[in-house]
Simulated assay, not measured.
Amino acid sequence: MRFAFMPILSDEPSSWPQLLAMFQAADEMGFFESGWLFDHSSSAAVNTSGPCYETWTVMAALAHATSRLRLGTMVLAVARRHPALLAQMALTLDTIAQGRLELGIGAGWRELDHLPQGIPFGTPASRADRLDEGCEILVRLLSGHTVSTHGRFFTLTAARCDVPPVQRPHPPICIGGGGERRTLRTAARWAQHWNHPGGRVEDFSRKRLLLLRCCAQLGRDPSEITTSATIPGEDSAPERMVEEVAQLADAGADLVVLRIRPPHEAARLERLATALEPLR
């Protein structure tokens, strides 16, 4: 089993120096292969106190402040950044990080991350369609193609990115979400990583099997897709956490992402690593 972590918001806010210290500690530890950041427009969107830093700005700072740890977004809402702009951002950041970017993207699930900023939210079906269309554009631009398209959600005319990809053919795309009718099929088409955002191990197992079925229908080799699940990182109740990780391993998960509430301290990562080391 491989491990990652993701600090999240709660009613006990963390400062930028705390987040920076946590990622730098993980960079030095060697236990965690990657660190991930959420994508919310404000703390009010998730009913917590702030501050809620902008994801991509923080990613750029962390890329410069670390040297080993892979850095990912769990996950960007596709409507909040046009895929042509996001492709340029991703290739630039992957250059800064020397090939350590994990580009996580999803359909979006919170109205409050969209409507206050004037961004259309839409129905679950339209959000799923927008994700699939956006992923196709992203993959083509990230791979160096010139793209012209007039789709339902995005229009591009001879768009291209001048920054060459460090990772070939492009930075890996992680699609987060468990939508059984559309999201899993989009992951089977475009993703190198699928993340189950949380819930019962039985749900992860069922959705993973559906992902494998979608891969078979599309002629995609499922071994090309890392499967992961996000769970609470419980340094205060490590036995329960270790049991859940073991069950996920039995269900076929390649990676577990530990969701960590404040305080975001390096000592918490060390306690988690100690508890989980036998499962690595």
Score class of each variant (00 low, 15 high):
S67T: 10
G72P: 05
R80H: 05
W36V: 06
R240F: 08
E102F: 13
D162G: 15
I105T: 00
R185P: 09
R185C: 10
M89I: 12
A191Y: 07
A97F: 02
D39I: 10
C174Y: 09
A44D: 13
V245M: 05
D132I: 02
E180V: 06
I173Q: 01
T66L: 05
E28N: 14
R280S: 14
L138Y: 09
Q18F: 06
C161P: 01
A229R: 07
Q98E: 15
C52Q: 13
L71R: 11
G198L: 03
R213G: 14
A4Y: 00
P116F: 02
G144T: 10
S34M: 07
V46F: 00
R130M: 09
G198A: 11
H82V: 09
E180F: 09
G179T: 04
R127E: 00
R182I: 05
I231F: 07
G178A: 06
T226W: 11
A61F: 07
T226N: 05
V78P: 07
T48D: 10
C52L: 06
D27S: 04
A25Q: 04
C161I: 06
L269G: 11
G199Q: 02
W109F: 12
F32K: 07
R189S: 00
L272G: 06
L258M: 04
L37Q: 09
V78H: 14
H150E: 15
R220H: 12
D250E: 15
R182T: 13
G144H: 08
A246L: 04
L91T: 03
R240C: 13
A187M: 00
T149F: 06
A253S: 11
R110G: 13
E102Y: 13
G134M: 03
P17K: 04
L255R: 13
G99C: 07
A128C: 09
R68C: 08
A216H: 15
L19W: 04
C52T: 13
L131T: 03
L19M: 13
A63G: 15
G219C: 07
G144Q: 05
T155G: 12
E270Q: 14
L212G: 15
E28T: 14
H150S: 13
L112D: 15
D203M: 14
L272H: 00
R127K: 04
S43V: 14
L101W: 03
L211A: 11
Q98R: 15
E270M: 08
G176Q: 03
D254Q: 04
M74V: 14
H170T: 08
F153A: 07
F3W: 01
L210F: 09
E270I: 12
P278H: 05
A249N: 12
R80K: 11
G179H: 01
L210M: 10
A246F: 05
G199T: 04
L20Y: 01
T149G: 12
A97P: 08
A107W: 03
S41M: 15
